[in-house]
Design a protein around this nucleic acid. Structure first.
Length: 357
DNA sequence: CGCTTTTGACCGGCGC
DNA sequence: GCGCCGGTCAAAAGCG
């Protein structure tokens, strides 16, 4: 499990941060993150330079009025300068990210052992392999080696699965008074069952991803045995669709669906089942919607990681949130489709005005 | 009316 | 083979 990649994916997807980090005069590419996934180069050639030059040509083609074209050029230059400023900000964020990643790697290699919730329950009579929903604590220390297809005892014939289901686990702290088993992670889930299991008196709820009809991802949610304010969710499989763009706004609004904080793609399971702990009891910082992915939460493990958390507090700042919003706006200005649509709309207005004059 | 949740029944794996 | 157990199904109920 690579927490840094999850964070990277979140950063890349949640705020349209696919920026071409080229300076306005040079165009040298600055890598976003050390481990940024390899992307189609052609899809990244969307710098402001392209927008400016093509827009100027477009403007000169569309309008003969030099004043208006000049105003447009001026505006584009302003956007260009803003983009440069944002690029610098993003560079700082990237540096912080890389530093944080390095510290996290050190931390993981030094003290934090992999958390594996998949255990053999020490039962003298039964050796049935069970899950431990008690918040990732391995009671007997007997760690089973990886086997991510543990949940194949379904009632229906197994589908032709050549790839083993990816399993990951997320622990979420909820209000003590909150007895529901709804865990909002940005996806839409359909509950299809609930069971009381032998090792935990709290019922376990079973969910299927309902955002896409063919999505195979399932989720099990159960309260922790030790700390019943902790909800432990186990995700199985990988979403075959992008996360919903609009997470559900408020709990309890409209149809009661289980929509969870966007945790990004279900992380790949290595030899250990990771546990990510979210704390939903704390107040939301700075206008962050309830279901907005939060890098701090995403990287907070069940073990304390004060150094990493301190670093990640930067991501939580209002400045960073503002920065994300600005990046989205910036991404729009760099989209050639958006530019063309804007030009078409403006040309329509100018044509309308000139005809009315 | 359509969708979701609830809940008892059913199925298959596993241990004895 | 039997019983236990986790996981799933599907009819009924609930809800907007």
């Amino acid at each position: 499990m690579d927490y840094s990649k999850s964070t990277t994916n979140w950063l890349m997807s949640s705020a349209s941060l696919e920026l071409e980090l080229s300076s306005s005069n040079g165009g040298s590419t600055l890598p976003l993150f050390d481990d940024s996934p390899v992307r189609d180069k052609s899809s990244r050639k969307l710098g402001v330079q392209h927008s400016v030059s093509s827009s100027i040509e477009l403007a000169s083609e569309l309008w003969l009025n030099k004043d208006e074209a000049g105003a447009l050029v001026e505006e584009l230059n302003r956007v260009n300068a803003e983009n440069k400023r944002l690029t610098e900000m993003l560079t700082v964020v990237c540096e912080n990210y890389n530093e944080l990643k390095r510290k996290l790697t050190d931390y993981m290699s030094n003290g934090a052992t992999s958390i594996n919730n998949e255990t053999w329950i020490s039962n003298p009579t039964k050796k049935r392999r069970t899950e431990n929903f008690s918040n990732g604590n391995n009671k007997n220390g007997d760690v089973e080696s990886s086997s991510s297809d543990e949940e194949n005892s379904y009632g229906k014939p197994k589908e032709l699965e050549t790839v083993k289901a990816k399993i990951t686990r997320v622990a979420v702290r909820t209000e003590a008074s909150d007895s529901s088993l709804i865990l909002r992670d940005g996806y839409q889930w359909r509950k299809y069952g609930q069971k009381v299991t032998r090792d935990n008196p709290c019922p376990r709820a079973y969910f299927k991803c309902s955002f896409a009809p063919t999505c195979p991802v399932k989720k099990k949610v159960q309260r922790s045995l030790e700390d019943q304010s902790m909800l432990v969710a186990t995700y199985e499989g990988e979403h075959n669709h992008p996360p919903p763009v609009q997470p559900e706004a408020t709990p309890g609004s409209g149809v009661s669906r289980s929509v969870a904080p966007t945790l990004g793609p279900v992380p790949t399971l290595g030899s250990a089942v990771p546990t990510v702990t979210l704390d939903r009891t704390k107040p939301k910082p700075n206008n962050i919607p309830n279901d907005t992915p939060n890098p701090t939460k995403m990287l907070s493990n069940t073990s304390t990681c004060s150094q990493a958390q301190a670093q990640l507090m930067k991501f939580n700042s209002s400045e960073f949130q503002k920065f994300l919003a600005e990046q989205m706006a910036s991404s729009l200005t760099k989209d050639p489709n958006f530019t063309a649509a804007l030009a078409a709309a403006m040309s329509g207005r100018f044509a309308q005005r000139s005809s009315s004059d």
